[in-house]
Simulated assay, not measured.
Amino acid sequence: MVAQLMKWHYLLILALLLIAAYLIIPKEGRREVVVGTIQGGISTLDIMEADWMKVVRFDKPLDLSQALSRGEVDVAVITAEMYAKFAEKDKDLKVIAADMLQNQAIIGIEDIRELKGKRVGATTASGTYAMFLAYLNLSGLSQKDIIVVDAPPLQLVQALERKDVDAIVCWEPIASKLIAKGYKHVDFIKLAERYLGRKPVMLVWVAKASFLGRPEAKEFIEMRERAASEWGKRAPEALKKLYNMSDGEISVLMRRVEIVRGLPKEDIIAAWELASAGGYISEGLIEELKGRAFWEG
């Protein structure tokens, strides 16, 4: 009887050791997944964690594009129009999911038509500026009707606070920080609803077709879907730490930001069309991308 109990005791210990080994030791064949993004903007990546995932934040879109092309980055979260720019040359790059609807804003005004004759600060090399120009044209104004002050995002905030400009064009988390201070604003998504009758996607997840054939791809996509579903619970604490935000700023941001599930193709195409109207990409490229951009996995 004692011998039998000892046997079961050892078998139980062996089973526990095997379970621990399975959990601790990396699964055979699993490789590190390198995720790229642009410095300074929010996404569901901010609440994604895994010991097999490495995050690289780039200062320049060109550097991220080249890293994707060379295979140094497996998957990235970028703006929809930035994807179009990248995919113009890299035909192996696919959109695998949407992440957020447009959350950019014009800070300092209540109606876009107020901008006539005003000094507007913007980062003119960005896709966001192209979107702004498209909305400006839809409102009946044009770039000729405003005085453009070109500067990086943080310098734009300083210019607004010094009243060197009348309004600035920006994105999260800068937009919510300024709105929380009481600045008037016009949201891009509201302009889209007014002029287009739909809500364009701002951020998309993209990956090389070669990565999507790896076993890690399925696990990564599932993790991203969990992050999207848990955004409301987990984002406030994560964003506070990452972007040094107050409770009031977080409250504004959580009301403004809308996470997207799945792959709403028409809302991504709407973003491309705005970028084209603003001169960021060509109309012909959009037609080409409609046939090859979206992952069908």
Rank of each mutant, 00 (worst) to 15 (best):
S43A: 00
Y135T: 06
P153L: 10
A97W: 05
G108F: 04
A293H: 02
A122T: 09
G41A: 15
A293G: 09
W231M: 05
R234Q: 07
Q104D: 15
K60D: 13
G140F: 03
E172H: 03
A76P: 03
I19D: 07
L68S: 02
G127L: 05
A238P: 13
K181D: 08
A98T: 09
L5A: 09
L12W: 10
E296S: 04
V157N: 04
F132N: 07
L17N: 07
A15W: 07
S142F: 08
E237N: 06
I168A: 03
R234Y: 03
Q104E: 15
A209N: 06
E32P: 05
F220Q: 00
L263F: 13
G262I: 11
K7V: 15
I107W: 09
V206L: 04
K94W: 11
E287F: 05
E258R: 14
K54V: 03
P264H: 11
V75L: 08
G29R: 11
G127A: 04
A167T: 00
A67G: 12
L136S: 11
L11F: 13
V257W: 12
P215R: 01
L5K: 07
Y280A: 01
E32T: 15
G284L: 09
A228N: 11
K163H: 14
K60P: 07
L14P: 01
E49N: 14
A76M: 06
P26C: 10
S65V: 12
K199V: 00
L18I: 11
I259M: 09
K190D: 14
L133Q: 10
I24D: 08
L5H: 05
D150Y: 11
S210A: 10
L18Y: 10
